[in-house]
Design a protein around this nucleic acid. Structure first.
Length: 397
DNA sequence: ATAAGCCCTCCCCG
DNA sequence: ACGGGGAGGGCTT
């Protein structure tokens, strides 16, 4: 049984409560104070204190074919959380260049880009089209249960790592994923896995880390289910392209509402408009525009939670039990249902609690549905209502 | 309860 | 070459 160890990192450099649920990765779960996920062949447990993380690593009892299991957990933490970049000095640069950013950044510290595995990042964001965070989480979880290697059982929960490309480049994947509720994305995933394994050169995806932003972006577009927005998510979140700005309708809202961006001529999102919004932010914030964008993006998600928590004082914490009904998919259809009791705390970002004020720049009206969906997911995680998570099989209809 | 509105990519059509 | 518009699955309003 492994022990808890300390990993020094300031809360202002990394706030896992925010970063692990702002729509970058979809596999982390929080139970009580502990975040957990299977990563690079081990189960990783994390708890955050103001000046360090506590972490615990659990390796499989029998050797498992999982990529990266040789990496030390310290190296993994440094790499996954992208800690070689000094976030505080970036915040200062962006604040100097942009008063609106400066205003938002005060209450939203420690928001940085993860440095994810490109393959997981790619498949997760193919799932993200036409979709909301909680359902993406369901899908990715199911993908791991069905195709990913079992790593270990910890405190009654079985953890699976993300499946390697080869596992998804086999016959029947599209059909299985359709039954699991992936919809039309099932085909995209099957085709993309096939392309990566059978048509593109070995190491092609990881190799995009060495290429310039535009080249990597354009290369990704050849994959099925990958358009400009998803390509930018991958560039930003796993390929080290800090200038990539994924423009969805929500970011479009921020641009028009908070930055007076004028989207006159086209009414739908055209390529020209897409590039114009990205360029706008790249000029404003500089080469780290993608990182800066995620601070504002996340800040907007939070504003809802802030209003809900509202006048909660600094020392008040709500901690209640939530009953989560969880259905586990096995084989081809939903079979098992189990009750799980989860304790949750109502404070997301410990640095956010006090100053909940109305910001004239970001008043309502702004409600894009993506925003609302993500906020809803956040509130689900925070609030105490009974949450029903349902997975539909193909025949259940 | 039902219908309408969304999200993002693909693909066809002017 | 470029933009408009519908399909596609499931969730929210």
């Amino acid at each position: 049984m492994s022990a808890w160890k300390k990993f020094p990192v300031e809360l202002s450099e990394l706030c896992i409560d925010t970063v692990l649920r702002c729509g970058q990765s979809f596999r982390w779960k929080k139970t009580g104070e502990t975040w957990s996920c299977a990563l690079k062949g081990r189960v990783l447990l994390l708890q955050q204190e103001p000046d360090h993380l506590r972490y615990r690593e659990i390796f499989p009892e029998a050797p498992v074919e999982a990529q990266g299991s040789g990496t030390s957990t310290i190296d993994l933490l440094n790499d996954y959380f992208n800690l070689s970049t000094d976030l505080k000095s970036l915040y200062k640069q962006w604040s100097d260049r942009d008063p609106h950013f400066s205003k938002k950044a005060i209450t939203f510290t420690g928001i940085r880009m993860l440095r994810q595995d490109p393959w997981e990042n790619l498949i997760s964001f193919i799932c993200s089209s036409n979709n909301n965070i909680s359902r993406i989480g369901q899908m990715v979880g199911n993908l791991c249960i069905h195709y990913g290697p079992r790593i270990a059982e910890v405190d009654g929960t079985v953890y699976h790592d993300f499946p390697a490309p080869e596992k998804l480049a086999v016959k029947g994947v599209e059909e299985t994923l359709r039954k699991l509720g992936f919809g039309y994305r099932a085909k995209y995933i099957a085709q993309t896995a096939n392309m990566v394994v059978n048509e593109l050169p070995e190491g092609w995806l990881m190799g995009l880390r060495e290429k310039p932003y535009r080249e990597a972006h354009d290369a990704l577009l050849q994959l099925s289910g990958v358009g400009p927005k998803v390509a930018d998510c991958i560039c930003l979140m796993s390929l080290d392209k800090t200038e990539a700005v994924p423009v969805d309708t929500h970011v479009m809202q921020i641009a028009t509402r908070d930055y007076k961006f004028n989207k006159i001529k086209s009414k739908s999102m055209t390529k020209a408009l897409y590039d114009a919004v990205g360029d706008h932010f790249r000029e404003l914030w500089g080469p780290g525009a993608g990182w800066a964008h995620s601070v504002l993006f996340t800040a907007d998600l939070k504003s809802f939670a802030d209003k809900e928590v509202g006048v909660v004082s600094k020392t008040t914490k709500k901690s209640k039990s939530t009953t989560v009904k969880k259905e586990v998919v096995e084989g081809e259809s939903v079979i098992k249902a189990e009750e799980v009791t989860v304790k949750r705390e109502a404070n997301l970002n410990s640095s956010v609690k006090d100053e909940i004020k109305e910001d004239p720049w970001s008043d309502d009206q702004s409600s894009s549905s993506r925003k609302r969906k993500i906020e809803t997911a956040t509130v689900d995680a925070l609030e105490t209502t009974v949450v029903r998570r349902r997975l539909r099989s193909g025949r259940e209809r």
